[in-house]
Each structure stands twice: as structure tokens, then as C-alpha cells.
Design a protein around this nucleic acid. Structure first.
Lengths: 296, 296
DNA sequence: TATTTGCCGTAGAAAAACTCAACCAAGTGA
DNA sequence: TCACTTGGTTGAGTTTTTCTACGGCAAATA
């Protein structure tokens, strides 16, 4: 009824972003992590937004939060909007600095496989600068600040994805240890080195190899594959290796594969490219460097 | 090459909004106005964004700014993103408070026509609360915080729009003044009251009425029609009235129309409803109140 | 029963955003 | 021609927002 002052302000953009993140992840803590702030900050944003709307968006349970029907209803709209905004921002970045590539990948891939390939890329196209960001989970290429992602993937590839290699595993160790291993059953009694991200690897391999020991759980576990690899090089035991990650060590002779049995996992290392980045010069150069070397 | 720290931050959301606004309006000053800040704030945001992108988005001319090709290329993406975000926010508002309606309209419509209709609405649906915001130009209903807009429009109506009435103009004055006017030519020598937003009205009317004076420029101009109307009621002269805006005064006898000639302008007062607001209860009630009374 | 997990609340600190006022340069117009 | 206007810029200072730190709490876990 009353004539309001012009342009009533909406909620703060950061509050909207906090809502979108918290709602999508169904957790304030996770949203805080995603946005690189403390959970308290998320609480405040959400509260501010709820106050503005004069309605609750979340029901607070003692352990975690839950969306109200209203929040649930609104989430897709906000997610779509922030996807689009993120995409616009990334588009700005890509178009502004076409020679800077950002790659997201697993820490072990970054360290043990990718760095070599990037040497190749630098040789081919020295004006392209690459940042590698080691993350645990595959990012949303449309929204997040990466041009390329390299992760293991199971199942069908989309048309934008490139298969880099199939993941194959087999035991590796120092030549000294290998000398005392003549058959798979000799593993009984040896120290088996594990990687926590691929905890089931030893079990998977042993299952598929005849005459092998049953127990694939013995021995130390490392959270980084690169550490496990280093341990193996130091003769600490036998590591279940992923082929591409130990090639360099095998070629250098630091490690050997004592058995001929290589087991294929039903997944591949897959490279995906952000929509805006396809068909750029830098993208072509990158693919060249990655795939060229692979066939060699 | 180097392994960057995780989650590199993007530009501030407010900077993006400033860019979108400035780019769309092709003016920092206009953007400042739209976002209710000073031009200096816009300058700062844009500069920050340009620094982040390491690229210019605008070329500064001495009189105003111009988009660079890069900025031009990016604008549609950002506009789409902010449209969507605005729409999501309005959706939140509408769904949170379905009984609060915001109407955007011209100041004169708000004061002289709408307030009466809203009385009717309040009678029919007392639980609906209405805010009327007087603005000069029609808002983007998908993005801006209004559920309904009421503006004059020329040409075809879209399916979401409702024609409220055709705009017709004719002179009005107090009965005392009317007493000494027997023919249109008597206007010669009288004081003609003008409204600045519809400056050409007198000329338009005079052109279309036989035997009229040629000069439609004499007399005082007011920037608000309501002020001009008040002046007319005080006997300050003869006002070129818009029919719907003076009905109440005519009915009350404060003003009369000294001549029978009513001239139709080729435009109508048109009501448009935001997408999210269509099919809501409040919307139906509003339409009822607006159109019901009209036919009476 | 002790511990952990995940959100809340507040106080104070840090960062961002904004205003203000002076300034500049190119048109405009008296 | 000289003052005025327009539209953007700049930097200092201030306000507002945003964030962190940290104690608290309640339920699930062990």
C-alpha cells in the first residue's frame, strides 16, 4: 500500500552463493570448505538470507542440516544461475589469458605422470604456461576454474573426453627383493605396501592371479601414492603399482615387476576439457603433448 | 607448471555485477545509479575485474565508456547469468511471501489511478499486502524485484500482458474557467498547464481538434502530473488530462471537461506479470480487482 | 561414559565496499 | 572564447560486510 523507496535491495550475492553451496552439498561444513571460509561464515550468510526471505531454508538437525521444501524447490534455480555465472567468469579468464592452462587432477597423477607430459608440452609450446592443481575429486569444468581435468573414470566416455590409458596394476619392488621371489606364492611372508586411496588393489590383484596368497591386507598403508612409491624404492616392501605411475621407476631400474601378471581395472585415466576451452590453440597443443608421448 | 594452492579465488561477485550493469548500460554513471552506489565504486570494481583478468574490458573515452571486443563478447554471458540469478532471488521472495505483491509503475499512475484500485483489492483480499514502487521506466520483471508492472505501451501485447485502458487525453479545468470557454478557439489567451513527461500532449490534441489554436506551448510545466492536476484544481489554468488519471476529480466535480473532444493516443496502459507470479492466488486476486472495477 | 561431529552464537579483527571531494578532459553554448 | 556540463578517475577516509576464533550444545558413536 505504501509507496516504497525505489530499488529495494536484494540479499547479498555472497549469501546467495553460500546458500547454493550449502544446499547443494547438504552441509554447512562442506560449503565452508568449498568457499574457503569457516562454517560460522556460512551460518551467518544463511541466517541473513533466511531473515531476508522471512522463511527458513534449512532445518537444523543436531547432526548436519536438511533443506526445507522451500529450499529444495529453490536449489535448482540457484545452482543453474551460479553455474552460468561461473561459466561466464571462466570464459573471461580463458579469453583473457588463452595461454594459461589450469589442470585439475589427482595428486599422484600430478606428481608421477603429468609432470613428465608437461615437460613435453613445454618443449612443443614454450609460451603456454600450465598450472596443475591437485584435488581429490573431479571438478565441474563448466563452473570451476579449470580448463582440463584428468581423473580415473569407469564406464562410457562422453564425446568431450579422451581416454589416456587403461588403469593396470601389478606388484613392483626393488631388484633385491625381486631376486627372492620366484612365484606368486612367495608373496606370503613379504611386506605388502598399500595406498589408502586405492585400498583394495592388492586384494583385487590377488583374486585374479592363480596360486596367490589370500591375504592382501598385511603391511603399511600410505595416504599418498608417491610416498608409497618412495618406500618401495627404499626396499620397504612390495607395492601394488599403477602402470603409468611407475613407468619412470621401471625404466630407471629402481623398481622391477617380479611377476608377469598385469591386471586391468575397468576404468581409464580420462582427460576432459572445459567447453569454452575446446578448439583453442592451447587445447590442441595440450592434447598433442599428452597423446603423442603416450603412443611412444 | 607449479602446483598451485587449491581453489584459486575468482573475482568478487559484486565486481561481476558492476561489470554486467555497466556493460549493459554502456555507462558507469548509469550502472552506479542502477546499483545505488557512486560512480567511483563502479570504477573501482571494474578496475579490480580488469586487473584480475589482466585485460581491459572498457575503453575509456572522454565522454563515457565503450566496451572492448572482449567485453562485448562476454556481456551476453554475464547478463544471462545475472538474469537467472535475479530470477532465482525473486522466486525465493515470491515463494516466501506469496501474499506480498510489489508493483512497479509510473508515479502519476501510482498516485492517481492505482491507489483506488488497491483499495478495491484490499476489500476483496485483505490479507494481501501491496507495495507500489514509482519508477520512470519499465523494469525487467524476470530479474527486478517486482511482481507486476503497469506502464504505457505502444503496439502489440504479449500473451502475458493485460490491456487496462487506452490512453485518451482532453483538457480539464475548474467549472469557473469552463464557464468562459464556449469553443476551442477560446483557449487562445488561457493558461495551459503542462506535464513534462508528456510534453507534447497539448500540441497533439490541438492538432487533432478543428478550429484550435496553433500554439500548445504556453504556460507552466510541472514534472509531476499530480502537481499539475492540483494546480488545475486550484484554477491555475487548463490541464491536458489523461482520462484515467482525472476520473476521480471529474466525478467529484472539482474539474470539468469544457470540450467534448477526446483524443486517443496509440498506446494503452498495460499490466505485465512476472513469470513466477502468474497463476498464483495473489495474481488472480489482483487481476480481479484491476479489471473488475474497470468495466464498471 | 567419553568422544566426535556438525551447527550455533558472539566478539573482535580483517577485508571489502562505499562515499566524498577534488580533478581532468572534451564537448557545449552563451 | 570562457564558463559550464558531462562522465569518468583518484585516493583518503569511513562504513559495512565478512570472516575467524572459540566456547557451547545436542545427538550419534564407540
Amino acid at each position: 500500500m505504501s509507496v516504497a523507496p525505489p530499488r529495494p535491495k536484494g540479499p547479498h550475492l555472497n549469501a546467495l552463493r553460500a546458500f547454493e553451496s550449502a544446499a547443494r552439498l547438504k552441509s554447512f561444513a562442506a560449503a565452508a570448505n568449498e568457499l574457503c571460509v569457516t562454517p560460522g561464515a556460512i551460518t551467518q550468510h544463511i541466517k541473513a538470507l533466511e531473515a531476508w526471505a522471512e522463511n527458513d531454508l534449512f532445518v537444523r538437525r543436531t547432526r548436519g542440516v536438511e533443506l526445507t521444501p522451500l529450499g529444495e524447490e529453490l536449489l535448482p534455480e540457484f545452482t543453474a544461475a551460479f553455474d552460468m555465472l561461473g561459466s561466464a567468469v571462466q570464459s573471461l579468464r580463458t579469453k583473457s589469458t588463452p595461454n594459461k592452462i589450469r589442470i585439475a587432477t589427482l595428486p599422484s597423477i600430478a606428481q608421477l605422470w603429468l609432470s613428465e607430459k608437461l615437460g613435453e608440452l613445454r618443449r612443443v609450446a614454450p609460451d603456454i604456461s600450465v598450472s596443475v592443481v591437485a584435488v581429490e575429486t573431479s571438478p565441474n569444468l563448466a563452473r570451476d576454474p579449470y580448463d582440463v581435468s584428468i581423473f580415473f573414470k569407469h564406464g562410457e566416455l562422453s564425446s568431450t573426453e579422451t581416454d589416456l590409458f587403461q588403469d593396470r596394476i601389478f606388484p613392483v619392488c626393488t631388484p633385491e627383493i625381486a631376486a627372492r621371489l620366484t612365484s606368486v606364492s612367495d608373496l606370503e611372508g613379504e611386506t605388502l605396501i598399500h595406498d589408502s586411496t586405492w585400498a583394495g588393489d592388492w586384494g583385487y590383484w590377488l583374486e585374479r592371479v592363480p596360486d596367490s596368497a589370500r591375504d592382501g591386507k598385511r603391511g603399511p598403508t600410505h595416504s599418498l601414492f608417491s610416498v608409497a612409491l618412495e618406500e618401495a624404492c627404499n626396499g620397504a616392501g612390495i607395492l601394488m603399482a599403477h602402470e603409468a605411475l611407475v613407468l619412470a621407476k621401471l625404466q630407471a631400474g629402481a623398481l622391477v615387476a617380479p611377476f608377469p601378471h598385469k591386471v586391468s581395472l575397468d576404468r581409464s585415466l580420462v582427460m576432459d576439457v572445459a567447453p569454452r576451452f575446446r578448439n583453442t590453440v592451447a587445447c590442441k597443443m595440450l592434447k598433442l603433448a599428452m597423446i603423442e608421448k603416450l603412443s611412444a
